[in-house]
Write a protein that binds this DNA or RNA. Structure first.
Length: 765
DNA sequence: GAGCACTGC
């Protein structure tokens, strides 16, 4: 045998097939997959031939390599490779600036050699932009074109080449999707979960899955990358051989500058006012350097920017010799990208040459804590609050609450001051409160959210017992019960909790179960074309723009597009008009519509259409408009029968069916009457309990298309139940009238409204 | 008569 077989002394955890024989001049000649030394890797990296493409390394490559060598993680390659060789699961901690996201996956590729066995290395990210930009960087570092050996996969964009790509960055949600149709994730030899400490829903579910897969697939290696504070928890969670053997930890220091932290002496009663005062104090008294202030939402941010600007201009006029000019830049996600770019503008120049330098203040939501990094920040002002989604399973409502941040979050915020040079962080709470009042970690998303979608995904992932699934943190039983109950009513799960054929298709759609059910049912009502549009519109951010100084004009424009029969029909009408106006941005602008959101809706619509085609769900429509609208409203009932409210009393007060929550129509609602029965897309708890995106429905549809849920014997007593009973009585006598066609036995008169004809509308008010 | 923390499929 001429060539050496590299697999004879392979460690037991691997069961990979033998690679193609390598010639003596191949940079990988003689390497033992998963038993590669740092000497071998360094030699290959510094060699003239790219070991993965067999092409000469470019000059650019060598330059980048020199920069990579300065990263803290690079100096620990040897340690990493040793620990990777010896273990199936590793927990790795690398602080900001360590280079872990770009380097560790490359080290893994050099050791694992996935391309020699037809496998891939995956590295997940919580955000799309991160997956894209890191993949681009790593492709450059490995001297390959993006989308070939190194690629990425995110929703709407697959930049990989089957058979060529062996290093794939992807969003955590995307890997979860793949797992639904490949329960063992068999395409991957190593899976790296990055930013695990963020505890997104997808990462949490992946951790549970991977723990199970690791037991069945000894050839799969797993690397969990996280921030310091969470490492122990993950080490314990991934101790496959019992609690006394936690998963090994690999730790890399960060490369940041020290940040001095200051606390207030007393608690601040008004954090917004205190924040503004602190920013101005820094501006007056501290060395040059930009400021980052964390507030909780758009309104607070815009208000603070106005006030800071006013006061700073005053200071500049009073004392131009010692105070420089100041610009204040708001930052939150609903700002158009162009305005978000402003955060990278340089600070303003001195007002006069040689005068005091200018300063930039960024007033931001939590988006600047994780998603966006801004270089040049020297001062952080942290009032200690953020808006958090919380779910109340009892009344099935998610709401946003201003809550104190966690210690981990406070640490992260402070760190934003030390990216380019030593900085300062001003915390607007006392040190005692920091020590005693703040939680260690932010609650993971799985504990704060409606899990209907997740439970359906888990069922599709083959998890039989959802309650006893090995969660890193188990959700509240009531939240799981609510999800199981909804999915059972939607017929996605049977009474034993098993996934039905319908549920299996529902899970394929990137939609909430109610919307998936509605879409799948819609061909029966000859309106799948329209329901598809409505579902797409409901999946994107609000399309209505309402600039503060043009509210009247915006409302008038909205009225022109409103369909008084229901907000769902209005959404469809907006989309159709958008398409009829050739997707014109100016048309959007003139009608106070967000072109960005409408483009997104179009994108989502075409993705959903592809899934429909895959499952042969017909795209059909009804020609007659009034008939079409009725059919659409019937199809709505098939998904949203649990989100129905009944008008009770005089003053537009509604009561949700079964839950008996008192709610009102949201002021954005376009109905011109207040109908007796309405279906709603969401229940929001803001200043009052509101139902938003509302359409009128007929009670007989509820009884007909959602028989199980509208089994009146399960209803609490009350006006809703009595009203439904009257409808039921009428229906049964109508049915009796049809069966026993004796004249006069049926109550219904000929030509009674059968639901296909429009009703006359009463004007409200 | 009111919003819209942030992601992801």
């Amino acid at each position: 045998m001429a060539s050496y077989n590299p697999y004879t002394s392979q460690p037991p955890v691997s069961s990979s097939p033998a690679p193609a024989n390598l010639g003596k001049n191949d940079p990988l000649f003689g390497w033992l997959p998963r038993n590669v030394t740092s000497e071998q890797v360094l030699k290959a990296m510094e060699g003239d031939v790219n070991p993965f493409t067999k092409r000469p390394h470019s000059a650019q490559y060598k330059k980048i390599l020199e920069a990579r060598k300065k990263l803290p993680v690079f100096g620990q390659m040897d340690d990493f490779l040793k620990i990777f060789t010896k273990n199936q699961i590793i927990v790795m901690v690398g602080e900001t600036g360590s280079g872990k996201t770009t380097q560790i996956p490359q080290f893994v590729c050099y050791s694992d050699l996935p391309h020699t066995k037809g496998k891939m290395v995956a590295c997940t990210q919580p955000r799309r932009v991160a997956a894209m930009s890191v993949a681009k960087r790593v492709a450059d570092e490995m001297d390959v074109p993006l989308g070939k050996q190194v690629g990425y996969s995110i929703r709407f964009e697959d930049m990989t080449e089957p058979g060529t790509t062996f290093m794939k960055y992807m969003t955590d949600g995307m890997l979860l999707r793949e797992a639904m149709n490949d329960h063992e994730l068999s395409r991957y030899s190593t899976i790296i979960l990055d930013e695990a400490h963020e505890r997104t829903l997808a990462t949490d579910i992946l951790m549970g899955l991977l723990k199970g897969i690791a037991r069945r697939r000894s050839d799969l290696k797993i690397v969990i990358m996280s921030a310091t504070l969470d490492a122990q928890k993950f080490q314990r969670y991934f101790s496959l051989e019992g609690p006394e053997k936690p998963a090994p930890l690999f730790k890399v220091p960060g490369r940041t500058h020290p940040v001095e932290v200051f606390y207030t002496q007393e608690p601040e009663p008004d954090y917004c006012e205190a924040a503004i005062r602190t920013v101005l104090m820094i501006h007056r008294a501290e060395e040059p350097g930009d400021i980052l202030l964390f507030l909780t939402g758009e309104e607070e941010i815009e208000d603070a920017c106005r006030k800071i600007k006013l006061e700073a201009d005053d200071l500049l006029n009073q004392d131009p010799d010692s105070v420089g000019p100041l610009v204040c830049i708001p930052l939150y996600s609903s700002l158009p990208p162009q305005q978000q770019q402003r955060i990278f503008d340089p600070a303003p120049p001195p007002r006069v040459p040689g005068g005091p330098p200018g300063r930039k203040v960024i007033v931001s939501t939590n988006i600047a804590e994780t998603s966006l990094t801004i270089d040049g920040i020297v001062y952080v002002v942290d009032p200690g609050f953020f808006k958090q989604k919380v779910y109340n399973p009892r009344i099935r409502v998610e709401s946003l609450l201003v809550t104190p941040i966690s210690k981990a979050s406070a640490q992260q915020r402070a760190g934003r001051a030390g990216r380019t040079r030593p900085g300062k962080c001003f915390r607007l709470y006392t040190e005692k409160d920091f020590m005693t009042e703040l939680e260690e970690q932010t609650h993971p998303e799985i504990l704060r959210t409606n899990l209907a979608n997740t439970v359906l995904e888990l069922a599709k992932l083959g998890v039989k017992d959802l309650v006893h699934f090995d969660y890193v943190d188990a959700p509240a039983p009531e939240t799981l019960m609510r999800a199981l109950e909804l999915l059972n009513y939607l017929a996605a799960l049977d009474d034993e909790g098993n996934l039905t054929a319908l549920g299996s298709i529902m899970a394929e759609f990137p939609l909430d179960p109610q919307m998936a059910k509605m879409l799948i049912s819609s061909p029966e009502f000859n309106c799948s074309n329209e329901i598809l549009t409505i579902v797409a519109m409901l999946s994107v951010p609000n399309v209505w723009l309402r600039p503060p100084n043009q509210r009247k004009e915006a409302d008038a424009a909205k009225a022109m597009l409103t369909v008084p029969d229901g907000d769902h029909l209005t959404l469809m009408n907006v989309y159709n008009n958008y398409v009829n106006n050739k997707h014109d941005k100016n048309w959007c602008w003139n009608n106070y519509l967000s072109a960005r959101a409408l483009m997104q809706a179009e994108n989502v619509r075409s993705q959903l259409l592809r899934t429909m085609e895959r499952y042969e769900i017909d795209l059909v429509t009804t020609q007659d408009e009034r008939r079409l609208w009725t059919n659409i409203r019937k199809a709505l009932v098939c998904g949203f029968f649990m989100q129905v409210a009944h008008k009770e009393g005089e003053k537009n007060a509604y009561l949700t069916v079964k839950d008996n929550q008192v709610v009102q129509l949201h002021p954005s609602c376009g109905l011109d009457t207040s109908p007796e029965w309405v279906i709603f897309n969401e229940f929001v708890l803001t200043t009052k309990p509101y139902i938003r995106t509302v359409t009128e429905v007929r009670p007989e549809w509820l009884l007909e298309f959602a028989r199980n849920y509208y089994d009146l014997s399960t209803f609490p007593d009350g006006e809703t139940k009595r009203a439904l009973m009257r409808v039921q009585k009428k229906r049964s006598s109508k049915v009796a009238g049809i069966i026993d066609s004796t004249p006069g036995s049926g109550r219904s008169s000929p030509g009674a409204n059968n639901g296909d004809e429009p009703k006359k509308k009463k004007r409200r008010g």
